[in-house]
Design a protein around this nucleic acid. Sequence first.
DNA 1: CTGTGTGAAGGCTTTCACAGCC
DNA 2: GGCTGTGAAAGCCTTCACACAG
Lengths: 216, 216
Amino acid sequence: MRYFQRTFHKMPKLEIPRKAVYRLSLYYRALQRLKGNAVETVSSAALAKVAGVKPTQLRKDLAYFGQLGTRGLGYSVAHLAQTLREALGTARLQPVILIGVGHLGSALVRYRGFEKEGFEIVAGFDADAESIRRDELGLPVLPMTQLRSFIQDRQVKLAILTLPVTVAQEVTNSLVENGIQAILNFAPTVLQVPDGVVVNNVDLAIELENLSYFIR
Amino acid sequence: MRYFQRTFHKMPKLEIPRKAVYRLSLYYRALQRLKGNAVETVSSAALAKVAGVKPTQLRKDLAYFGQLGTRGLGYSVAHLAQTLREALGTARLQPVILIGVGHLGSALVRYRGFEKEGFEIVAGFDADAESIRRDELGLPVLPMTQLRSFIQDRQVKLAILTLPVTVAQEVTNSLVENGIQAILNFAPTVLQVPDGVVVNNVDLAIELENLSYFIR
DNA sequence: CTGTGTGAAGGCTTTCACAGCC
DNA sequence: GGCTGTGAAAGCCTTCACACAG
């Protein structure tokens, strides 16, 4: 996971703490639920409780985007949700490609939980593309040779990596060369990428080891 | 993810920073690779590079466990690996249960990357246990009614949750009641647990949203 | 001379306390 | 009175600088 300085066209005046961005997603989720229950305004205390954080922290996080609440009243659920959507860049559907269509990759494709959050997996890539039953997935599965043209034609910026460690770095280099700017990496290895490319790691063994440490 | 105070029987004198524990896993992985290449000693600079951290940070992290290195020389690969194994509690194989044997759950079972890290998924549980083709998984899949006896008989402390949001909290309560101490949660919701129970969340939509934020 | 161990400094994040607005 | 917005304080983690051991 990396963090870097940027000039934003409009959004925040100050640079937002890295961890705060994660929390924005939690707030957004909580707001969706409130919206479903036809709630119109919510206090920082109530929203923070659902998101599992302290009220002051929530207010600090939101303050990066200006004065969003009304004193004495709280936040407008609809307005705040919209602001967060735009801040997170999920106001428009983002195309994502998935590299490595094995067990885990296939499960992620079928998971479908991404779409309502603003992401669409538009294609899978695999070294052995021929052998994959693509109709079961409802997704085109292409050979790696088509990576370059696909990324460039479709202007894809986001990739999910569900590959064996042995080829992860090599494929990453190729992704970066072709214009991918952000990678969600499931391979249990530290990827080397140039500045300006962001990697988030999801490492299941590390999560288990971490839990294991705290059990006694 | 939660953090809490504990009295440890032996390990560290001081409390280890929460994030440092994650890095211990990275170091351990890197050491395994060095071991494979028959490397006997390694400097903090070399090990840190592979793990993607700064040498001073690595030394600070390791210092929590006492004087592990030799000045002027570095660390013994074998000895350090063993120390980390014990610290992380993966020196012995830990039994893990998986709750919710859908697409994602099945993919995790088949993934098998856990075993060499010291974890064994010993059973799956599902509300609809009957309908799951258990021979393809090579894993017993049991109905939820057997949760209690299984956890208690096998002394299971770790659970992986791959369930829909709607039932996640309810099942969590049941797990905690029956003695589960740590949960790796894939459901996109904030679980409420009592003190003494640790939850690590793996939330794919949040990871994507986070990446999306940093793309411009 | 090499490379670890560590107090001290620095930087980042969270929490507090309360001013300010509805 | 209720609840947000925010400077200041506290807490936590990382990095530095260097003493010290081999």
